[in-house]
Nucleic acid binder design. Sequence first.
DNA 1: ACCTAATCCTGTACACTGTAAAGAGTATTT
DNA 2: AAATACTCTTTACAGTGTACAGGATTAGGT
Lengths: 290, 290
Amino acid sequence: MAEEIAGRGDPVRTLELMWGKAPAPRRGPKSRVSVADLVAAAVTIADADGIDAVSTRRVAEAVGISPMSFYTHIPDKAVLLDLMLDAVASPPGEDTPANPAFDPAEWRANVTFVARAFRAFYLRHPWVLQVGTHRPVLGPNTMRAYDVFLSAFDGIGLSEVEMDLSVTMVANYVHGAVRDVARAHMVKEQTGKSDDEWWYTIAPFLETIDFSPYPVANRVGPVVGELYGLGDPDLAFDFGLERLLDGLERLIEGKASSAVVIPPKLTPADREGLVIPPLTPPRGAPNSGR
Amino acid sequence: MAEEIAGRGDPVRTLELMWGKAPAPRRGPKSRVSVADLVAAAVTIADADGIDAVSTRRVAEAVGISPMSFYTHIPDKAVLLDLMLDAVASPPGEDTPANPAFDPAEWRANVTFVARAFRAFYLRHPWVLQVGTHRPVLGPNTMRAYDVFLSAFDGIGLSEVEMDLSVTMVANYVHGAVRDVARAHMVKEQTGKSDDEWWYTIAPFLETIDFSPYPVANRVGPVVGELYGLGDPDLAFDFGLERLLDGLERLIEGKASSAVVIPPKLTPADREGLVIPPLTPPRGAPNSGR
DNA sequence: ACCTAATCCTGTACACTGTAAAGAGTATTT
DNA sequence: AAATACTCTTTACAGTGTACAGGATTAGGT
């Protein structure tokens, strides 16, 4: 019942493993398995049976070593989760060109594209939504995804800070919006019960309840329900995305003349010379440019 | 390692417990504890020590019964999670008036208010973010929160469907945006390590890495880092919210003349007469109207 | 060739988890 | 008084992450 949270292991050790920069062992027997093998096995399990099917024992068994041998290669389960997140952020078979050609004139289409790709990524690996990451996963694949994401906002008149904030905004929105759909998918697979069946199961009970204390919901709910049945996640996603794009457009239009939106409140400059990577890389990768 | 997902127990039983409509027992000894006691204890534990500290044994012990007696009152741990979510959605001490007076003329302020309140709710109960809900929590408190949320969008020229979509959009955005902050809080409390320390720990390693394959990120990252240090979550939140509001404003402005935005694609009308509650109540409550 | 140190792999063990099963005690209905 | 329905308890099982100790294998230093 340890909760699934990545980013708790020794951060440097995690990064070393993620970038393949762990110092090569000088003595001792050759490993029968590699870290990549373990991570790949874990991802396979997670894709198939969900994140709670990923146990150190099962991963070890999948690659053919004994349970405790897992810890020879990966110090923690938390580290495994980090490695899984970066591994899945850009599937090997679907590499993207080094610099995706985003025409700034088509920025709405570009942002829509990366947002949809990001969403598709979550739907392909829904377990990612269940892994809480309280630190950015600074792995190569995640960085790549962040770079592509950022590129969609490049050259359209936004400052660097605004670009980062915009990526964060869209990524956050996508993350929030995809939850319901992804979970619905998972539940359908696991329990075989669709949303419709669930509603019909509880409908008799709901009829016994007085909804008058919730007047607005009571007015809106039935209308929405009749028009869209039990909800159209794709519609909801596009609706929100369009609003976001309109909001961005207004920002871009107003940039030329209007006041600066982001106040540059400098922090004490004792960080000079320090390599500070991006603040909030998206968790996972858009499967962009195919 | 069972994953924390609510909404898996018998839905009707869950609803009965949530609305206090479980049939009163006709015989047998009086209960020493109530469902509300158990839920309250569980929430206390979650608030204090995080969601993975909430075990059936610990909850039972907290109310003074033996571990298995838990199951006399609550069928599942999944049901407990649902009950916790609705219980926390509107703390007893902070009740709101039945109809919060939202002046439609001030809709931007109103939406900002509910969004901020929603965000504050997550920061007060960060464990809510770790509980995956694949079904809406149709409890009284959650309904109330949804109703208040909806009210902020009422009377400003949006259709019912657009109101629902707008609430969903804002709720999704807030959910996504609050993750990092909430987790940072939790980690700070649990490990005593702040984001800054984490960055300084990994900085030496990061300097050994070639970031040139990520040109845009490599350009944006340092600028953002220098201006805002390790990130200003409040700023990022407000930035995204302002864009959202601008997008909504454009929608509202264009409503009078322009074409209908939402195509009314009717589903087969075999749902007539069925009471269909709101599609996607927000998970948790804005602490609105104080 | 030997010894030592580093490394991989393994078995055992512990404290947890959710909860199934069975039974003991208690209050109400018949 | 007997049957019933309910609360609460004990025991038990299959899982989990991982600490610890030891055995097997390789390379470097002598």
